[in-house]
Computed example of a mutant assay.
Amino acid sequence: MITLPDLHPDAKALTVFREHRGEPRTYTIAEAPGGRHSIERTLFVAAKVGYVAVPVPGQAGYAVLDILDGEDQPVQELSIPSRRAFVWWYHKLRLRMERDDHR
């Protein structure tokens, strides 16, 4: 099992960012229904199966898991290491790609 750093005290929600074919993709924000405890529990399960990791400087994972505060600002980042892990997070958080109105 991967050991993760302590969850930031202001953690309220999660989202994902990744690049696909050189284009940035952002995803919807998933509010934690059970608050901080539900984020901790989800991260615990994800760490057990290898679906989240501590970011390694200079090594890009498949995607970035952003932990957000109550104002939807990132307060912590973790790595989603693989496509399989990304698909798990996508379904777990019921993510959808944010629409880009600038195209």
Rank of each mutant, 00 (worst) to 15 (best):
T42H: 10
V64C: 07
V56Y: 02
G22Q: 04
R84C: 06
R25T: 05
R103N: 14
W88R: 10
V16L: 11
T28Q: 06
A30I: 04
A46P: 09
Q73I: 13
G70A: 04
S38L: 10
I2H: 07
E71T: 13
G22N: 03
S38I: 09
T26D: 08
L7K: 01
K92G: 01
M1C: 07
W89Q: 07
F17H: 10
D6A: 14
R25D: 10
R103E: 15
D6P: 14
H102Y: 12
L65P: 04
A32V: 07
M97P: 05
H102P: 00
A63R: 09
V49R: 09
K12W: 03
T15D: 10
S79L: 07
D66K: 13
A46Q: 04
R41Y: 08
A13N: 02
Y90S: 07
E98C: 14
G58S: 05
L14M: 12
L65H: 02
T28L: 06
P9N: 00
P33N: 00
I67K: 00
R36P: 01
I29S: 03
V75L: 10
Q73A: 14
R41W: 07
A11T: 03
L78K: 05
H20E: 15
G70Y: 03
I80Q: 09
V64H: 05
D69C: 05
A53R: 12
G35C: 03
G50P: 02
E98I: 11
A60P: 00
D100V: 10
D6L: 11
F44S: 14
D66Y: 08
V75C: 15
S38E: 12
W89H: 06
T26E: 12
A30S: 13
V45R: 10
T28M: 05
D101N: 11
G61Q: 06
P55M: 05
R83M: 13
S38F: 02
P24M: 03
I80L: 08
V52I: 09
G22M: 05
I67W: 02
T42P: 00
L4N: 00
D66E: 15
T15V: 08
A11L: 02
M1I: 09
E23A: 15
R25L: 15
R18C: 12
A60L: 11
E23N: 12
G61T: 05
V64S: 12
L14C: 01
D6Q: 11
V49I: 14
V54S: 05
F17C: 02
P5T: 04
K12S: 13
T42M: 15
V45E: 14
S82V: 08
H102L: 13
S38N: 08
E19M: 13
F44C: 06
L4P: 00
A32C: 08
R96D: 13
F86H: 08
A13H: 02
A60D: 11
H8Q: 03
M97W: 05
L95T: 03
L68T: 04
D6C: 01
R94L: 12
L4V: 01
L78Q: 06
K12R: 15
Q73N: 14
W89C: 10
K92A: 15
F17I: 06
K48Y: 09
L78A: 10
G34W: 09
E19I: 04
S82Q: 12
L4I: 01
D10K: 12
E77F: 15
V54H: 00
A32S: 15
W88Q: 11
M97K: 15
T26G: 10
F86N: 06
G58F: 08
I2C: 02
D10G: 01
D6E: 14
L65A: 04
E31R: 13
I29K: 11
P81G: 11
R25Y: 12
